[in-house]
Design a protein around this nucleic acid. Structure first.
Lengths: 101, 101
DNA sequence: TTGACATGCAACCCTGTGGTTGCTTATCGT
DNA sequence: ACGATAAGCAACCACAGGGTTGCATGTCAA
């Protein structure tokens, strides 16, 4: 059972997506990841601290990543000792036409 | 300084909008209001209980309405002893192109 | 093989907030 | 005027969740 990359995040939980978007730090992380894909947790942490002046620990960010991943907004692959993070906007498009006609 | 109705929710706080959307009950309220505008708090409460089987008190819903109003997603007018609620989708459109290109 | 580096995991703390109950205020119909 | 109805307000409770610290695991380079 290998991760095939084509499993399109199917049974997406809307609640998780909205929850994921509710936190400002996670939104910043999405900003960063959407503009520059393929980062490791360490790179992302560094960038958030440098560019956005976020004072936060790596562990806290790891938790945020877990939530974002469960929401389908980020996927990650382990490459050796690195964990590469990839942004995925599919859940966003699925959600937004709920109240807009 | 009268409420002129034309103040277009200008200095919209994105954080408030995302927070408002984070709660499933509030999302149900938006569903209900977006499909059937101009309801009183009481009507809305009744509908949520009847149609969506939401077990919740009027006071709790009032708090939700307050938050939705602060987020700009709902506006309300007092007509006599009634408070008419109106859905407003402007904050949603403002938010959604943040990560979608 | 060993040390440095990137990450994973678990327990703990504290604030935010969704929910409740109880009471007050205000408006309407009769 | 008076009771009924719609809403506002305040205090309280319980739990989720964002943050931390401390330590364990795993991988790479020399």
């Amino acid at each position: 059972m290998q991760p095939c990359g084509c499993l399109s995040y199917a049974p997406m939980d809307q609640d998780l997506v909205f929850k994921a978007l509710a936190d400002p730090t996670r939104r910043l992380m999405l900003d960063e990841l959407s503009e520059r894909n393929e980062q490791t947790l360490y790179e992302l942490t560094a960038r958030l601290i440098m560019r956005h002046e976020v004072a936060i620990s790596r562990q806290a960010l790891a938790k945020h990543i877990d939530l974002l991943e469960r929401a389908g907004l980020v996927s990650s692959e382990k490459h050796g000792k690195y964990r590469m993070l990839v942004f995925n906007d599919e859940p966003l498009t699925d959600i937004m036409d709920r109240w807009l006609k």
